[in-house]
Design a protein around this nucleic acid. Structure first.
Lengths: 111, 111
DNA sequence: CATTCATATGACCCTAAAAGCATATTAGGA
DNA sequence: TCCTAATATGCTTTTAGGGTCATATGAATG
C-alpha cells in the first residue's frame, strides 16, 4: 500500500500523529484513541508493512514507533505544492551561500 | 471528499500535476495522459467539488486550473513530517531577521 | 437548423479495503 | 502448569469508489 492510500484513512492518520511524539504500545493507542483493539492492530499491521512504523517486542507489549522517513512518496509529491515554502527555501539558500562565500561566520557585511 | 482521499488516486495526482504548470482544457488532459474522456471528466468533477480546481468556460471548451490552495488539509497535516524543512525554515527566519535588523532592503547583489 | 465537436452525466460492474466479531498466539505471573 | 493479559489474525459483511460504455447536453459551424 502506497503512502497516499496509507494516509487516506483517518484512523491511520490519528495513529501516526500519536506516534509522532513518542513510541507507544498498542494498549496506549487503544486508550488514547478509543478504538477497538483489532482495528488498531490491523491498522498497525498495514502501517508496518508499508514501512511507516516499526514494532519492537518488549515482553508482552510491542512498542510501535515511526520510522525515520514514514511517508517518502507523499512528501516528495507534495513538495511542489508548497510554493511558499519553496520560495522561502530558495531565499535561504541564496542568503546562506553568500554568507559562506565571503565571510567566515560573521554577519554579511552590508556595503 | 477530503484532500487525502483526493490524492489517494493516481489518476487524480496525474491531473493535478499536469495542471500545476498551466491550465488546460479537458481535451488537453486526455491527450496528455492517454485516458478515456469520461474518466477524466469524472475526476475533474471530483476535483472541482473538492475545490482543488476551477473550470472556466471558453466556448466549447472548459479550461481547468488549480485553485490557489488546492490541498490545504493535506499540506497542513503533512507539515510536521517535514522535519528537515522545518529546521531549514527556522534557520531562514533567524537569518532574515538578523539581516533586517541592521540592513535596509538592499539585496546583496551577486558581484 | 442539422451536424459535429467538446464535455458531462448515468448505469453498471468490480475490487479494495474498513469495521466488527470471534478466535488464535504468546508471554508473564500465580 | 494454569491463567490471564497483550496483541495478532481470520472470517464475513458492507460500502466507497474507480473504470467502462452508452448517452445526454450544449456550443460552434456549415
Amino acid at each position: 500500500m502506497d503512502g497516499f492510500t496509507l494516509i487516506a484513512d483517518p484512523t491511520r492518520r490519528q495513529i501516526l500523529d500519536r506516534l509522532r511524539g513518542a513510541g507507544s504500545d498498542v494498549g496506549g493507542l487503544i486508550a488514547a484513541l478509543g478504538l477497538p483493539q483489532p482495528l488498531v492492530s490491523k491498522h498497525l499491521k498495514v502501517l508496518r508493512e508499508a514501512g511507516a512504523v516499526t514494532a519492537t517486542v518488549a515482553g508482552k507489549r510491542r512498542i510501535y514507533q515511526l520510522t525515520a522517513d514514514p511517508l517518502p512518496d507523499v512528501l516528495a509529491w507534495v513538495t511542489p505544492y508548497h510554493q511558499l515554502w519553496r520560495d522561502s527555501l530558495d531565499r535561504l539558500a541564496r542568503v546562506l551561500d553568500e554568507e559562506e562565500e565571503h565571510d567566515e561566520h560573521d554577519r554579511p557585511g552590508d556595503r
